[in-house]
Nucleic acid binder design. Structure first.
Length: 525
RNA sequence: GGGCCCGUAGCUCAGUUGGUCAGAGCGAGCCGCUCAUAACGGUUUGGUCGCAGGUUCAAGUCCUGCCGGGCCUACCA
């Protein structure tokens, strides 16, 4: 709709899971987007939440001797706790157990039904409770214990026959392909887009969208023996938030979403089923779905059975919040799988943050504090030595914005750090400590250029590291209203009093031994 | 079986539509500086651009085959 609005969502997380780096990563990417867009003057809506329905939850609640709602109230808390722990800034945290969500699901269902794209049939097949999915017989195999399991997931399956409502997905193949073609940005990255198109071209089968084997979910209108398929329920949260079906609701202005951020495992639900549901109901599909990759841990796949899951909160505790956020966004080209290595984490923390950025701030600010009376020094005439640095800093906003619009977070950070690198080189080349004796006015001017450059890169780094950058901006005496991108070109005013500088990015301190790390720590693995 | 992606310096990766494309960062060695969080800067580090062919005046950059890694999907059953 209005290009001044920006609506971004995380998937809603299944409460039966324990939060891990996958959840944290998806939400972090959204948080960076949301913060950037807010700073860039957009009217942002950033939504995250939890998916609380389904047979697994029903069973888990029963096992715990609890009512499902009470149970989900409890287990969803760990996801809500992640918000402050990771510094996320969602505008709302939605839960599928909210009454308004039931209303939205049922309204969407009725629309699709009225359009003739939902019909009652019968489903028979091998069903896995754990996977919440039906499998073709060929997708299962009988193990030595005589139990049949899904080949892909290893989950036990049972033969189930039940009446079921179906979504007429088979009728949407051509319209979906047309939609993909007309909206080349809809699926990202490109490789995922290729996969989805290839999948849809391979033919689509009607989709079972209701279950009668359990109760914990949204009842099908006028046929409460049926509970809606979890994905029909879950995906709808994105429009529930906007007030659906009330298209006069205050939040409806945010729809269609600008970006659904998802992990690569749930691309299909978001790029095939979801736009088909919406188009069937006469609702505009979202503008873009970005499927990011997975993390491995020191080169190994992460799995619960291996016990090598990564607890992001523990990372924050050891390395710091902004350091962790920076690493996750910087280390890997967004969209690719990434490998978490402690050595790399420490490397980033020390080289990029402490040495390059933190030390730049510290060295410049301490010269200013000692030589310029603790105030922003006087700007003098610009020379050819100053212009390349200042020009690059000035151009960085547009460059970073371009990267952010493509979710190229690592490239956005690279762009910022190029300026930081140039600034460090500029310090050495200009040697303000030498100028102190020969040309104090020039010295002041050089320091002004540096402070101005630090201000700009720090403004741009805010979405990634909100806490640390706020502290640096405090040290630059940049007022709150000077921290949005609207103020990007508002230069530092000479004479402004500055507080005493303080280090913001410490180097990593090994809590164990003071012994230096072995030099060739990672030769082979 | 079909499809998609990838394999470039020790490590992580950039390399548009073929012709300074053989690069960056990190690590390591050497040198310099001293404002700073022993931080910063300069410089070096000599990679058959997975392998083998082909197209072209010219190919990491296009084509074919092969090897290796990842992913989507199908089926044999």
């Amino acid at each position: 709709m209005s290009d001044n609005r920006f609506y971004i969502t995380t998937p809603i997380y299944y409460v039966n899971d324990v939060p891990h780096i996958g959840h944290a990563y998806t939400t972090l990417a959204c948080d960076v987007m949301a913060r950037f867009m807010r700073l860039d003057g957009k009217d942002v809506r950033f939504l995250t939440g939890t998916d609380e329905h389904g047979q697994k939850v029903e069973q888990a609640a029963a096992n715990a001797g609890m009512d499902p709602k009470a149970f989900t109230d409890k287990v969803s808390q760990s996801f809500r706790d992640l918000v402050p722990a990771m510094g996320y800034s969602p505008d709302n945290f939605i839960r599928t157990t909210e009454p308004r969500h039931y209303a939205a699901c049922q309204a969407l269902w009725n629309k699709v039904l009225a359009a003739g794209d939902i019909y009652l049939g019968k489903y028979a097949g091998w069903y896995s409770v754990r996977d919440e999915a039906f499998y073709a017989e060929s997708e299962t195999e009988v193990g030595p214990d005589n139990k049949r399991r899904a080949t892909a997931s290893g989950a036990e399956v049972a033969w189930v026959e039940e009446p079921s409502y179906f979504f007429r997905l088979s009728a949407w193949q051509d319209r979906l392909l047309k939609f993909y073609e007309d909206n080349p940005r809809f699926i990202a990255p490109q490789s995922r887009r290729n996969e989805v198109i290839s999948f849809v071209k391979g033919g689509l089968q009607d989709l079972s969208v209701s279950r009668t084997t359990f109760k914990w979910g949204v009842p099908v209108p006028n046929d409460p023996a049926h509970i809606m398929y979890v994905w029909f329920d879950a995906l709808t949260n994105y429009i529930t938030e906007c007030g659906y079906p009330d298209e006069t609701a205050p939040n409806w202005k945010y729809w269609p979403a600008d970006l659904h951020m998802v992990g690569k495992d749930i691309v299909r639900f978001h790029t095939v089923y979801w736009p088909a549901f919406l188009m069937a109901a006469g609702v505009a599909p979202p503008k873009r779905v970005y499927a990011h990759g997975w993390w491995t841990n020191e080169g190994q796949k992460i799995s619960k059975s291996l016990g090598n899951t990564i607890d992001t909160v523990a990372l924050v505790k050891e390395f710091g919040l902004d350091q962790t956020r920076y690493f996750l966004m910087r280390e890997v080209p967004f969209g690719n799988d990434g490998d978490f290595r402690r050595a790399a984490m420490v490397q980033r923390m020390d080289s990029d943050l402490a040495n390059a950025y933190g030390n730049l701030c510290q060295r410049v600010l301490s010269i200013v504090a000692k030589n310029c009376g603790g105030a922003v020094p006087a700007k003098g005439p610009l020379t050819d030595a100053d212009r390349p640095l200042l020009d690059k800093a000035r151009g960085a906003l547009a460059a970073v914005r371009e990267k952010i619009n493509e979710q190229a977070f690592n490239e956005a950070l690279t762009t910022i750090w190029e300026v930081i690198g140039d600034a460090n080189r500029y310090v050495d080349a200009q040697a303000p400590w030498a100028l102190a004796k020969t040309d104090p006015a020039r010295r002041d001017h050089v320091l002004w250029v540096l402070i101005e450059t630090i201000r700009r890169v720090t403004l741009l780094a805010q979405p990634f590291m909100p806490g640390s950058t706020a502290r640096i901006l405090d040290q630059l005496a940049v007022p709150a209203e000077g921290r949005s991108f609207a103020a990007f070109d508002r230069e530092m005013a000479s004479g402004t009093a500055l507080p005493a500088p303080q280090g913001v990015f410490p180097r990593y301190v090994d809590p164990a031994a003071p012994a230096p790390a072995p030099k060739q720590a990672r030769k082979k693995a």
